[in-house]
């Protein structure tokens, strides 16, 4: 029963409800995520974003409603769902005592891949961790840990990737690195559902944005569609000042790969700021 990716949404959620004791976190959530798109679930702290991700990754049973991931019901076919997904939780799910390479090989082995060593080495190179591959993860910086965490999630090429607040606690450079990875993933056809409380993150990355508030989706659409919800802005003359982030990134711009990848992003973020009403 192969279903064509374009016809069926990668994720479909209908009437999702979940309470913790008397606290009703989700009160009937509906949304679809198109295959190959980046979908951002926005919301403040405690809005239920993580609950939603935990339900979709089969870690939590909903009280009501249905959800399918890659065509499989999270309640009825959890094993097939787990075969289709990868979860990068809010806190880097890496093994501190193992080295970066051992972490990657561990996941590759659990996913029954042929050559775990090669898988690990390829990912270390791709995520700019080759030099740190044999070091214990407990010596990694927050950004390196997050990159390793995401690299571990890519092993086995899951169709759908959940990123729960992937950039919380990262410095601006590490944040941009994560954004780049997410964009590349989507380019390769992976469906990405990310949660975030940073609005600019959703603006930067997402093809589709849903706002979770009070246990329901209160807005859902592309950025352009969401902008139309408000009255059109007046045209004003605004002098373009560099943001502190632009200044920071220009100043710390390093000569290695990180720096060179950061520079064009600075330029594009400046450009996009000028476009805004």
């Amino acid at each position: 029963m192969s279903v064509s990716a374009s016809a069926v949404p990668a994720i479909r959620v209908r009437g999702m409800e979940k309470s913790y004791k008397s606290l009703q976190v989700l009160r009937g959530v509906d949304f679809d995520v198109a295959a190959g798109s980046i979908f951002a679930l926005l919301g403040s702290n405690g809005a239920g974003k993580t609950t939603m991700v935990r339900i979709l990754s089969t870690l939590l049973k909903p009280d009501g409603g249905t959800a399918t991931v890659n065509g499989f019901g999270v309640a009825s076919e959890p094993v097939r769902v787990r075969e289709s997904i990868s979860l990068t939780g809010q806190f880097a799910a890496v093994d501190e005592i193992l080295s970066g390479r051992e972490n990657l090989m561990l996941v590759a082995r659990l996913r029954q891949l042929k050559d775990p060593g090669k898988v690990a080495d390829d990912l270390l190179a791709r995520f700019d961790l080759a030099g740190a591959g044999s070091r214990k993860v407990s010596t990694y910086s927050g950004g390196m840990r997050r990159r390793l965490d995401i690299a571990m999630s890519l092993i086995g090429e899951p169709k759908v990737i959940f990123l729960d607040e992937p950039t919380t606690g990262l410095d601006p450079e590490a944040r941009i690195e994560v954004w780049q990875v997410v964009k590349e993933l989507a380019k390769q056809g992976t469906t990405v559902l990310l949660t975030t409380q940073y609005l600019d993150e959703a603006e930067q990355l997402a093809d589709w944005i849903a706002i979770l508030h009070g246990g329901r989706i209160i807005a859902n659409g592309t950025l352009a569609e969401l902008k139309r919800l408000l009255p059109p802005g007046e045209v004003q003359y605004v002098e373009k000042q560099p943001t502190l982030e632009d200044i920071f990134l220009a100043l710390v711009g390093k000569d290695d790969k990180v720096g060179s990848s950061a520079t064009p992003v600075v330029a594009s973020s400046v450009a996009s700021r000028e476009d805004r009403p």
Binding site: S57, L59, L87, G89, F91, V107, L110
Partner: peptide, 12 residues
């Protein structure tokens, strides 16, 4: 540490 949830969300 979160590694537990990673394992639980994997097909193992």
């Amino acid at each position: 540490s979160g590694i537990f949830e990673r394992f639980q969300s994997m097909p193992i």
